[in-house]
């Protein structure tokens, strides 16, 4: 039993990041705007976004608060920003979600490729992401048009693409949300690999981030991580003192 558990532990895969040196967004409170192209699909898009936002926000060891923002009108030509080249640059600011009725043209992905959405984090400076786009496929007749999918599948897709915007790359772990193929998922959930990845980029450090998860987070994520808090030191000294007193009492 122990050997089986150890082997299952050792067989886990690693999360990845979208680029070397990436340390996520500067802020740990991030708002996703919705483009007016999604107006005809707001019910489905908002439901999926709410589920995805809740999922990432509630990662236990991460310090991240996501929200849905206002409806905006995306400026520029979509194909200018989304494609297979990593050198493309999106506008700086809150990430935007776009619904594309001409998905194959906009993204350069052939029709009926089974790709329901693409996303990217752009404008990376000093490791910090400063812009993001999520393009959902609503192209009529396409086999990955999200309006033809059930709500859980759409939520999984949106959550996965949000993961990219937050700074995560794909995972080799099949149980992870960030695994490249989400077609087998029928429950929206994070794998430990996803939790590790988002915690690596946005580590939660109480009491800086409010004790016991009592409140939303307002602090800027330092991204450095690994700091030892004063309460931790106090607690450790207290433990050592009590152990020492106990041992002394036991001897006398």
């Amino acid at each position: 039993m122990m050997l089986f558990l150890l082997l299952s532990v050792l067989n886990s895969q690693a999360f990845t990041l979208i680029s070397t040196g990436n340390v996520g967004w500067q802020t740990s409170t991030l708002t996703f705007n919705v483009d007016t192209t999604c107006n005809n699909y707001l019910g489905a898009v908002n439901a999926a976004m709410n589920s995805a936002i809740s999922l990432w926000t509630n990662a236990p060891t991460a310090n991240l608060t996501l929200a849905i923002g206002s409806t905006v009108t995306f400026s520029g030509t979509l194909s200018q920003y989304v494609g297979t080249s990593a050198t493309l640059v999106a506008p700086a600011g809150n990430p935007t979600i776009i619904c594309s009725t001409t998905f194959s043209t906009d993204t350069g992905i052939a029709a009926n490729s089974g790709i329901p959405g693409v996303a990217g984090a752009f404008n990376i400076s000093s490791g910090r992401i400063q812009g993001g786009l999520l393009v959902l496929n609503v192209q009529s007749g396409d086999n990955a048009n999200i309006t033809t999918m059930n709500s859980t599948v759409v939520a999984v897709i949106v959550a996965h693409e949000m993961g990219h915007i937050l700074g995560l790359g794909h995972s080799g772990d099949t149980s992870a949300l960030m695994y490249y193929d989400a077609s087998a998922k029928n429950v929206l959930s994070l794998g430990q690999d996803d939790v590790d990845g988002i915690s690596f980029l946005y580590p939660r450090q109480e009491p800086r981030d409010k004790v016991f998860g009592c409140a939303t987070i307002e602090n800027i994520n330092s991204g450095s991580g690994g700091g030892t808090s004063l309460p931790l030191l106090f607690e450790f000294v207290l433990l050592l003192t009590i152990i020492r007193l106990g041992i002394r009492n036991a001897k006398t």
């Binding site: 690693a14 990041l17 040196g21 794909h170 690596f200 580590p203 700091g227």
Partner: peptide, 30 residues
């Protein structure tokens, strides 16, 4: 902890190179 470097993973209809985490980060919770 992460050693840094890159890895190649499936990216849907092709493969892509992704960065592995580099350095050490801790989450501390009561």
């Amino acid at each position: 902890y992460g050693p840094g470097g890159t890895t190649t993973l499936n990216n849907g209809n092709s493969t892509a190179t992704f960065a592995l985490p580099s350095g050490s980060v801790a989450s501390t919770l009561f």
